[in-house]
Simulated scan of single mutants.
Amino acid sequence: MKNIQIIDGAVNCVYDLFAATEEQFALIFPGDTDIAFIDEVYERGDAVLLNAAFKAIWQRPVKKKAANGIHGTLFYELEQKKAYYPTRKDDEAINPNGSLLRAVKR
């Protein structure tokens, strides 16, 4: 199982974690990506498969203190964040000027 952190545009967003199977994770995060935006997920995937995957994922919340890592981050309603993740890889996040967001790549 892989843990997905959910970040949405709500002021009271609490950054919940949910467990996904390897297959479900691959539907949301293609290749070696670990950042996804819900609109792009549905643009490139089959809605029926994705709806079934999310229905199952939402049934598997993970308590943060019990989590063994965060394997992907899924954004809802935060279009402005796309500019920081052009490769959809957390380790390659950039500033608006193109410089690395983090001083050192992890």
Rank of each mutant, 00 (worst) to 15 (best):
N3G: 07
I57W: 08
D90E: 13
N95F: 11
L50F: 07
P61Y: 04
G72K: 03
A19N: 06
T33Y: 00
G9S: 11
D46S: 12
V14M: 14
N51A: 10
V62K: 02
Y76E: 10
Y76M: 09
A93F: 04
E77P: 00
Y42F: 15
E23M: 03
D39R: 14
P61C: 05
A83E: 09
K2V: 00
F25H: 13
E43M: 06
E23I: 02
D32A: 09
F54V: 02
V14I: 07
N95V: 04
I94E: 09
A52I: 04
L101Y: 13
G9Q: 13
Q59E: 15
Y42C: 07
A53L: 14
A20R: 09
G72N: 06
A53H: 03
L49I: 05
R60Q: 15
A19R: 09
D8M: 04
A67I: 01
P61H: 02
N12T: 07
V11F: 09
I35V: 15
D90W: 14
L74I: 09
G9L: 08
L17N: 08
F18P: 00
A47K: 14
N95Y: 14
D16Q: 08
E92R: 11
K2C: 01
R44A: 09
L74D: 13
G31E: 12
A20D: 07
